[in-house]
Structures are given as C-alpha cells and as structure tokens.
C-alpha cells in the first residue's frame, strides 16, 4: 500500500491557482523527486502535505488516513517532517537544543530528548557543532540542522524543500549522501528541487509540475527525454530537437 496518496489536490491563493487537480502516490522507502520550474507549485504542494495549508479541493492520505486539513502539529504527530526552503533555525538556541525541540515530540523526558538529539546530530554529521548557537552555523550546516531537527521527530515521511539548492558541488554531494542514509533508515523522502542534475540521480521516481499541474510522472531516464518536460524548462524551440 502507498505511504502517501495525493488525490485531486487543488489550491488557489487569491485567484492564482498554485495547484490544480494533483494526484500521485508515494511508495514506502522511496525517494521521490518533486521537480519543475520556478512557480510550478512545488512548495505550495509541500505545504499542503505538511499540513501548513489546507487544500481547496482533494485530499491527502497518509497510510490510508486523511491528513489534509489537520494542521502542521497533527501532521508532525502522524510522522510527516519537513525542512524549509528558506532555512528556519531557532537562533537563540544551541544546535543540540534545536534538535531537542524535535525530539520532545516523542518523549517528555529531557534526558531522553537529549540522548535522541545527540544521536541524530551524530547521524547528520553535526555532533562537533552541538554546543554552538544555531546562528553561528554555515549555510550548508544550517540545512543539515533542519534535517536533523526533522529526523528527531522520528518521521515516516521526510519532506526536503530545496535542501541541495545553492550548495557547492562538494556540499551537494555530502547532502546527497545524507539523503541516501536517511532513506536507508527506512524513511520515505520527497525532495523538492528545481536543479534537475542534482536530484535526478538520487530519486527513484520524479513528479514534474508545471503551472500548478502534474506534467508527468516517471523514472529519471524517461523524465529527461520527455518533450513536455524539455518544453517546460527550456521552451518550444528545444523540444523539437
């Protein structure tokens, strides 16, 4: 059975249709890419899955149970965790404390939360920075911190919003390894990226969005050859070639 099912989700913001009748499923254990040009509606769909916005129509099911409209707190409780396109760290708190906030969603004990947070930091390669204040981290470290914080909630589904965008090739490679390690832990991943060459080698399948609609769904090899995808990214002239 599919872990996540998106059924006919539509969402408009003040007359601008961000998502129109979007449907697809996410299988357990896969890394799914959500790609498309700027303004395709990727982040909007992300926010719907994470519970931050409620779709105008359609529904989102996690393990067969409806999660759309429940709000972000309930979604986090059900096992959906996320990172943000523009990094949001708790800047007055240490790196360890940032991750503890996530860990407290599964335990009330400060000792247990700290232990879980330490393990998660170790897993994400941030253990040496645990005692630092979050604002002191470099941009790639902050993205790792977001992943660590999300993982600390023990999610079943992790939503990564442009986690690799804006990184140097080396940093992006390290990011890719982290995503693979997360998947190997049995956590299903959906990644939003608009840089195709980073995301395609990593994902098992990709959903391409354009102008708020699903353009195509397929394995990376098919996606890059699809004329519609080329048209959406590069324009009509290249599609003919």
């Amino acid at each position: 059975m599919a872990l996540l099912e998106i059924r006919g989700v539509s969402k408009s913001f003040g007359g601008v249709a961000a998502n129109v009748d979007i449907s697809f499923v996410v299988e357990p254990g896969e890394i799914l890419g959500l790609i498309g040009p700027n303004g395709a509606g990727k982040t909007s769909l992300f926010n719907a899955i994470a519970g931050e916005v409620t779709p105008d129509a359609g529904e989102i099911l996690l393990d067969g149970a409806r999660v759309s409209g429940l709000g972000p707190v309930a979604c986090a409780g059900r096992g959906i965790a996320r990172t943000f396109q523009v990094v949001r760290s708790f800047d007055s708190m240490t790196v360890l404390e940032n991750v503890m906030v996530g860990a407290f969603s599964r335990t009330a004990s400060a000792g247990a939360a700290m232990k879980a947070a330490e393990e998660t930091l170790e897993f994400c390669g941030l253990a040496p920075r645990a005692a630092r204040l979050a604002w002191e981290l470099s941009p790639p470290e902050k993205r790792r911190l977001e992943v660590a914080r999300a993982l600390a909630t023990q999610p079943r589904l992790l939503l990564l919003d442009e986690m690799l965008t804006g990184l140097t090739p080396t940093e992006a490679q390290e990011g890719v390894q982290l995503v693979r390690a997360v998947r190997d832990r049995g956590i299903t991943v959906i990644m939003v990226e608009h840089v195709m060459e980073i995301v395609l080698p990593l994902v098992s399948r990709a959903v391409v969005l354009n102008l708020g609609r699903v353009l195509t769904i397929g394995v990376p090899g098919e996606i890059v050859k699809n004329p519609d995808v080329i048209r959406a990214y590069l324009g009509d002239r290249y599609a003919a070639a």
């Binding site: 994470a50 931050e52 709000g71 972000p72 707190v73 986090a76 409780g77 965790a81 996320r82 943000f84 949001r88 760290s89 708790f90 906030v101 996530g102 407290f104 969603s105 914080r149 999300a150 600390a152 909630t153």
Partner: peptide, 8 residues
C-alpha cells in the same frame, strides 16, 4: 512556523 512543523 518551524516550531509547529516539529509538533509544537
């Protein structure tokens, strides 16, 4: 926003 995404 980050807090509520973590279940707070």
């Amino acid at each position: 926003v980050a807090a509520r995404s973590l279940g707070v």
